Amino acid sequence: MTYEDFSEGQLFQTPAVFMTKEEIMTFADQYDPQYFHVDEKRADKSHFNDIIASGFHTIGKVWAEFIKLDVLGEDCIGGLGADEIRWKRPVYPKDYLKADIQVTKIAADDQKNRGVVTLYFDVKNQKEKTVLTFFTDVVVAGSREQSN
């Protein structure tokens, strides 16, 4: 979608994705090897009482599902960053996650025929409890036809 195709308040939703203990531990072993992500015995005795997913894994998992919706498609030029990342609740093995994504802002740069689309992600588990929220800014191409 070109930035002109987006509108403030527009909503998208990812399908639910399943979190397995194996993928949680594999991701964490490589990218976030804290004991409550990789060591079952210690995690069982932790505040969480089990292995939990890295917050960065959770972001990546729902981002991938959003990309699979092909909303941005070939009009995506790239990301500018993420803001206000909040991990609200732990994500456990066997949790299902889905994201409600809302367009919160569109800033056009007509001189470069593109715009910045701000998206707000609200990620919920199977109990409809929010586990993660964040904003991200994405640069999106404008329409291919230039008006004179």
Score class of each variant (00 low, 15 high):
Ile85His: 12
Ile59Leu: 15
Arg86Cys: 09
Asp75Glu: 08
Trp87His: 14
Val62Cys: 04
Asp70His: 10
Pro90Phe: 07
Ala82Arg: 01
Ala82Glu: 05
Ile85Phe: 10
Trp87Pro: 07
Leu80Tyr: 09
Gly79Thr: 02
Gly81Asn: 08
Trp63Pro: 00
Arg89Asn: 13
Ala82His: 01
Glu74Asp: 15
Lys88Pro: 00
Glu74Tyr: 00
Gly81Glu: 08
Asp75Arg: 11
Trp87Lys: 06
Gly79Asp: 04
Leu80Pro: 02
Ala82Leu: 13
Leu72His: 01
Phe66Ile: 03
Leu69Ser: 08
Trp63Val: 15
Gly73Ala: 06
Lys68Met: 05
Arg89Ser: 11
Lys88Gly: 01
Ile85Asn: 13
Arg86Met: 09
Cys76His: 01
Gly79Met: 02
Ile67Val: 14
Glu74Met: 01
Ile67Thr: 10
Arg86Thr: 14
Asp70Val: 04
Lys61Thr: 15
Ile85Cys: 11
Leu69Thr: 07
Phe66Glu: 05
Gly78Ala: 05
Ala64Gly: 10
Arg86Ile: 10
Gly73Asn: 05
Asp83Val: 01
Pro90Ile: 08
Asp83Met: 01
Thr58Asp: 11
Leu69Gly: 08
Ile77Pro: 03
Val62Leu: 07
Phe66His: 08
Trp63Gly: 06
Leu80Asp: 12
Arg86Gln: 14
Leu72Arg: 01
Gly79Glu: 03
Asp75Cys: 10
Glu84Lys: 15
Ala82Met: 15
Asp83Tyr: 07
Ile85Leu: 15
Asp83His: 08
Gly81Tyr: 06
Asp75Leu: 04
Lys88Ile: 14
Gly73Lys: 02
Leu72Ala: 05
Leu69Val: 06
Trp63Glu: 14
Arg89Thr: 00
Ile77Lys: 08
Gly79Tyr: 02
Lys88Val: 14
Glu84Ser: 13
Val62Asp: 06
Ile85Met: 14
Asp75Thr: 10
Asp75Ser: 15
Leu69Lys: 09
Gly60Lys: 03
Lys61Gly: 02
Gly79Phe: 02
Asp83Gln: 12
Ile67Cys: 05
Leu80Val: 02
Asp83Leu: 00
Glu74Trp: 00
Pro90Gly: 12
Arg89Cys: 00
Ile67Met: 15
Val71Phe: 06
Glu84Met: 11
Asp70Tyr: 04
Lys88Ala: 12
Leu72Tyr: 05
Gly73Gln: 05
Gly73Val: 06
Ile77Ala: 10
Trp87Gln: 12
Gly60Met: 05
Glu74Cys: 00
Pro90Lys: 08
Arg89Ala: 13
Gly78Trp: 03
Cys76Leu: 13
Gly78Ile: 01
Lys88Met: 12
Gly79Ala: 09
Ile59Phe: 09
Trp87Met: 14
Thr58Gln: 11
Cys76Val: 08
Ile67Gly: 06
Ala82Pro: 00
Gly60Ile: 05
Glu74Val: 03
Arg89Trp: 00
Leu72Val: 10
Lys88Asp: 07
Leu69Arg: 06
Asp75Gly: 09
Lys61Asn: 06
Lys68His: 10
Arg86Trp: 03
Gly60Arg: 00
Lys88His: 09
Leu80Phe: 07
Leu72Pro: 04
Lys68Ile: 02
Ile85Ala: 13
Cys76Thr: 07
Pro90Ser: 11
Leu80Cys: 07
Ile85Ser: 12
Asp83Pro: 03
Ala64Gln: 09
Asp70Ile: 02
Arg86Val: 13
Asp83Arg: 14
Lys68Gln: 12
Asp75Trp: 01
Asp70Gln: 13
Ile85Gly: 13
Pro90Met: 09
